[in-house]
Amino acid sequence: MDKSTIICRCEEISLEEIVEVIANGARTFDDIKRLTRCGMGPCQSKICNCLVAGVIHEQTGMEFHQIPLPRMRMPISPIKLETLATNSTTFSSVKSVLDEVELEDGKVK
């Protein structure tokens, strides 16, 4: 592979960029992802996952079974917000910052 070979197609991240962050101490797919965005694209690393594992193996000598898989996150494929929404406007876990402003005797606490 040439150093300009694209490893992550979604985010256009080259081999060179990945090698560089590994040289800086990154060891897992998630370390590399946070530093380069490799794996954060629409396919959510389905395409680049194995390629990255190969680069980690080559650069660090770590065995494939020792390389942790990237954390798979919901949704597994892109989904519209309206599909997730239930159209309710009562919130419990989700707050508004003004909820945190409290008044006491007509003054901000």
């Binding site: 997730l84 929404a85 239930t86 989700v94």
Partner: peptide, 11 residues
């Protein structure tokens, strides 16, 4: 549940 509430907040 929190993902749904967060989607509701966004909309």
């Amino acid at each position: 549940d929190v993902i749904q509430e967060t989607a509701n907040m966004a909309i």
